[in-house]
Write a protein that binds this DNA or RNA. Structure first.
Length: 397
DNA sequence: AGGGAATATGCAACCACACAGCGCT
DNA sequence: CGAGCGCTGTGTGGTTGCATATTCC
């Protein structure tokens, strides 16, 4: 589709029309190369600029605005942890007094070595924070965050948590990771899970996530839930505060599990004993991961109680994955797409049930039995009304 | 600085009932 | 084989109580 300026755009899952890559014309652009005046997807950017180190170092590139996805980003909003173009920045931050208080800094060019050694998954190193800001841009956060996952080539050690070892169940891939079939969906689910369960964490912990020698995220070879890498997000989107608070709570709980696991995990699997520089809050100390928590139980993989974690019987085999830059870029892209499309609001599957619930008599918030005096529901929601209003239509899954 | 009390915040449980889905006749 | 019936499980929202976090003294 062409936008107002005639630019070819792609319909994204977020219902916005993102400018497409000027090179491949098939993927949404994520990077703007100033010298070339070209909008590129990360894959093409990697291909073009990684091929020529001179280009890579001299071509100043910036991320594309995360809001409109149509213009190069000019500012980074610390509060929203988003890179925004001038127009979107003005629009968003003039919306209300609270937004006006958001601290924004000029966006910095993407480091020229973006596709250098950092891209090698087996050699992921911590990227020093940009000098003018203590935080990374959102995209760089994504890079770091996604990179930490990319090291983990496969589902989140689901079987590690089971009583069968990865080797026993025969699903170990060549890297020693658990891998189920093509692994794509598994990975997506994993990323999605991580996004909700602990993926949004601080980058400063990235450094601590990697073993100094093996460049392996130290949080990775743990039981299923505890594989959540200790990262923290700078996102402070006010709409998401509630989520992040909860997320952060969970994060702490995970972290406790991690601490425990690692003390128990020094069992000669080829990993040196890990020293933890991860700061421990009062909450983390002495807190037993609550396996009875519904949110924990709702996770796809049941977390064994602290006392029942049996890591020694199931030594998870872990080897740093070697992925090509293109593979990595593809995964990062997929991760970003997932991140963009994630929804935090409650999903109503049955509008009719919602309508009935709203009209149902209550006693202290609880549903109460209808009495004869109650209004007949059929009068409130006659069949034709329900249909016209969209109620009564049950989505098929 | 450390500890206890007060306050703030977040979340799961609870309830009744319409409806989907399944098995059986 | 399709229709009808009965049974079971699911999903829906407002309030409450509890657990945890934060602030204050």
């Amino acid at each position: 589709m062409l936008d107002h300026s005639g630019t070819l755009c792609l319909k994204t899952s977020t219902t916005t029309w993102a400018r497409v890559c000027d090179t491949c014309r098939s993927a949404p652009c994520t990077i703007y190369c100033r010298p070339d005046a070209a909008y590129l997807c990360t894959a093409c950017d990697a291909r073009i600029h990684a091929a020529n180190k001179l280009q890579s170092s001299q071509h100043e590139r910036v991320w594309v605005c995360e809001a409109c996805e149509q213009a190069p980003a000019a500012f980074i909003c610390k509060a929203d942890a988003a890179s925004l173009c001038v127009t979107c920045d003005a629009e968003i931050h003039s919306a209300n007094p609270l937004a006006r208080r958001h601290v924004r800094v000029p966006v910095l060019p993407i480091p020229g070595a973006l596709y250098g050694p950092r891209a090698g998954l087996g050699h992921v190193t911590h990227v020093e924070p940009q000098t003018q800001s203590e935080f990374l841009s959102v995209d760089e956060e994504d890079e770091s965050e996604a990179a930490s996952w990319l090291l983990f080539d496969g589902p989140p050690a689901a079987a590690v948590n089971k009583n069968e070892s990865p080797i026993q169940n025969g699903k170990e891939d060549h890297n020693g990771f658990l891998f189920n079939g093509e692994g794509g969906e598994e990975e997506d689910e994993y990323l999605e899970f991580m996004e909700f369960g602990g993926g949004d964490h601080e980058d400063h912990n990235d450094q601590q996530c990697y073993d100094n020698n093996n460049k392996v995220p130290e949080k990775m070879y743990l039981d299923a839930d505890s594989v959540v890498p200790v990262q923290k997000n700078h996102h402070h989107n006010h709409d998401l505060d509630q989520f992040h608070h909860h997320d952060f709570q969970n994060h702490h709980k995970f972290q406790v599990g991690v601490e425990y696991d690692q003390t128990a995990n020094d069992g000669g699997y080829g990993y040196p004993p890990l020293t933890h520089s991860v700061s421990m809050s009062s909450l983390e100390v002495g807190v037993v991961p609550d396996s009875t928590r519904p949110d924990a139980a709702s996770l796809s993989h049941q977390r064994p109680s602290k006392g029942t974690i049996d890591l020694f019987s199931n030594p998870p085999v872990q080897v740093a994955t070697q992925l090509t830059p293109m593979d990595r870029e593809a995964r990062v892209l997929r991760y970003r797409e997932k991140k963009k499309t994630r929804k935090f609001e409650k999903t109503i599957r049955y509008a009719s049930r919602k309508a009935y619930a709203e009209t149902r008599p209550r006693i202290k918030g609880r549903f109460a039995k209808r009495t004869n005096g109650d209004v007949d529901v059929d009068q409130l929601f006659p069949t034709n009304h329900m249909i016209e209003g969209g109620y009564g239509i049950v989505p098929s899954f």
